[in-house]
C-alpha cells in the first residue's frame, strides 16, 4: 500500500481551477518529484496535502486513512506530514534551537530537555549544531533552509513535503540543501518535492510526476520521463528546460 494516495483532488481559487482531478500515490521511503511550469499547481498540491488549503473535491488518504474534508483533525495530520517552504519561514524572534524545539514541546508534549536533545541531534545532521543559539537573521539562506528542514524533521513526520526549497537560494547554496535531501532518503524518510531542480530529480527521484494545468499529465521513473517522455506537453516542457540550460 502506498503511504499517500490522492484521488480526484480538485481545488479552485475563484474561477481558476488550480487542481483538476489529481490522482497520485507516493510510496513509503521513496523520493517523488513534482515538476511542471510555474502555476501548474505544484505548491498548491503540497499545501493541500498538509491541510493548509482545503480541497474542493476528491480525497487524500494517508496510510489508507482519509485526511481531507470536514471533521479531520488537521493538527494530528500535520504531526505526521511536515512541510518545508520556499521562503524558509523560520520564526525570526526565536533562536535556531527554539525554532526546532517549539513544535515538539507544544504539539507533541515533549519536555524541554527531550526536545533539545532531539533538536541538537537534527541540527548536527544538517551541520548546524554550532548555530543552535543564533537567530535566523544571522544565517545564510542555505543555513536557514537547513534549519527549516531540521524543524520539520523534529516532528518525526511519516512524510515530508518540500516546496521548491532551493528556489530562493543563491546557486552556490543549492547543493548543500540538496545533499541533505539525499541523506533523508538514505534514512528512509518519504519525500514529496515540488522542484525546478531537474538534475536532482533525474538523479535522485524514484518517481517523477509532470503536472500540467492542474492535472497529472505524465508520471514514471526519471529515466522514462527525462529520457523518453511520451506526452507532447512533457516534451515541450523539457525542451524549454534544456534550452534554459537547466538540465
Amino acid at each position: 500500500m502506498a503511504l499517500l494516495d490522492l484521488d480526484g483532488v480538485g481545488k479552485s481559487y475563484g474561477a481558476h481551477r488550480v487542481l483538476d482531478g489529481i490522482a497520485l500515490s507516493v510510496d513509503a521511503g521513496q523520493i517523488t518529484c513534482l515538476i511542471g511550469a510555474s502555476g501548474c499547481g505544484k505548491s498548491t498540491l503540497l499545501r493541500c496535502i498538509n491541510g493548509l488549503d482545503p480541497i474542493d473535491d476528491g480525497e487524500i488518504r494517508l496510510e489508507g486513512e482519509t485526511v481531507s474534508g470536514r471533521g479531520v483533525d488537521l493538527n494530528a495530520l500535520r504531526r505526521q506530514v511536515g512541510i518545508v517552504f520556499q521562503s524558509y519561514n523560520l520564526f525570526p524572534h526565536m533562536s535556531v534551537l527554539d525554532n526546532v524545539t517549539l513544535a515538539p514541546r507544544k504539539a507533541l508534549g515533549l519536555t524541554a530537555a527531550e526536545a533539545e536533545t532531539r533538536a541538537l541531534t537534527l541540527l548536527a545532521r544538517v551541520g548546524l549544531v554550532d548555530k543552535a543559539r543564533a537567530y535566523p537573521d544571522r544565517l545564510s539562506g542555505g543555513q536557514q533552509q537547513r534549519v527549516a528542514i531540521a524543524r520539520a524533521l523534529a516532528m518525526e513526520p511519516k512524510l515530508l513535503l518540500l516546496d521548491e526549497i532551493t528556489s530562493a537560494l543563491d546557486p552556490e547554496l543549492v547543493s548543500e540543501v540538496l545533499a541533505i535531501v539525499r541523506d533523508l532518503k538514505a534514512d528512509g524518510i518519504t519525500l514529496l518535492l515540488a522542484t525546478h531542480e531537474m538534475g536532482f530529480a533525474r538523479q535522485s527521484a524514484d518517481k517523477v510526476v509532470f503536472l500540467h494545468q492542474g492535472k497529472v499529465h505524465e508520471e514514471g521513473p526519471p529515466a522514462a520521463i527525462f529520457g523518453a517522455p511520451r506526452e507532447p506537453r512533457t516534451q515541450e516542457f523539457l525542451k524549454s528546460i534544456i534550452a534554459a540550460g537547466r538540465l
Binding site: 493548509l52 493538527n75 500535520r78 511536515g82 513544535a103 504539539a107 507533541l108 520539520a152 516532528m155
Partner: peptide
C-alpha cells in the same frame, strides 16, 4: 502557515 504546518 509555518506554525500550523508543524501541528500547533
Amino acid at each position: 502557515a509555518a506554525s500550523r504546518s508543524l501541528g500547533l
